Amino acid sequence: MRSPVGEGRQRLLKALFDEFGENGPGPNLSMRQVAERLGVHHTLLTYHFGSRPGLLRAVLLEARRRDNVLIAATGDELGFAALCRAIWTFYSDPAHEDRTHAFFHLVGLAVYERDAFQELVVDIDGLANLLEAAALREGATAAEAGQRSLIATACLRGLLLQRLLTPTAEVDAAAERFIASLAASEGEKRAS
């Protein structure tokens, strides 16, 4: 008896992470090269993921889901600025550079083909939701929490993109300055 399609896809995702590690296959590998490494026919990958961008999207979504679980595990204990620092530390770690490259590659494709990447577009809000919850815990209104989350997410992503394009200590210093300004703002709100 054959397993349902979703189970086959999940088994392939597991095999992808087992073979390629937590970042999945690099964006430079073709579907045939990935299939060869997994010991499956490339048409099986095409059936479950559609295309190379579809494969990368599925791997990235699963990796981000796993990341969000790790970050969320500490998120309930952290304030807004500390959570921003944890997110920056996690994604600026060189061990996650391939995943960060894949993220921006797919976001670039999503800009041109939003409907084809709707699942990725929706998933992008995962970290924003964690940040919003941290802001709410600190007493922000729902509107303030949403705005703070949006600003922080956009700034951290922009800094990560800058770090990929021009990896200098200045980018890390700018991230630290941004996060320190959040902490200072939190301190001012508590004092008033």
Rank of each mutant, 00 (worst) to 15 (best):
V69R: 11
E7M: 10
C155E: 05
L13W: 02
D125N: 10
H48E: 02
H48F: 04
L161C: 11
R137T: 02
H41N: 15
R137K: 01
N28I: 12
Y47G: 03
R9N: 01
F49I: 06
T153E: 09
L12C: 08
W88Y: 05
T89Q: 15
L16G: 03
G146P: 03
P25S: 01
D115E: 15
R11H: 11
E22D: 12
K14C: 04
A142I: 11
F49P: 00
E176A: 04
I151D: 10
G21W: 00
P94I: 06
P167T: 14
R9W: 03
A145F: 05
R66K: 10
L45N: 02
L160F: 08
A86V: 07
T46M: 12
A72D: 10
V59L: 05
R66V: 10
I179E: 00
H42Y: 10
G21S: 00
V107F: 14
M1G: 14
A174D: 02
A184F: 11
A173G: 03
V122H: 09
A135F: 05
Q162K: 13
L78K: 04
D125I: 10
A154L: 05
W88M: 01
L160N: 00
G79P: 07
D76F: 09
H96E: 07
A145G: 10
L12F: 04
A58W: 00
G54E: 07
Q147S: 12
R32T: 12
G139I: 03
F117C: 11
E170W: 07
T74L: 14
H41S: 13
L60R: 03
G108M: 08
D67C: 08
I87G: 01
T43L: 10
L29H: 02
E7C: 11
R163M: 08
A191T: 13
R177I: 06
L156M: 03
G108S: 12
A133E: 15
R157T: 12
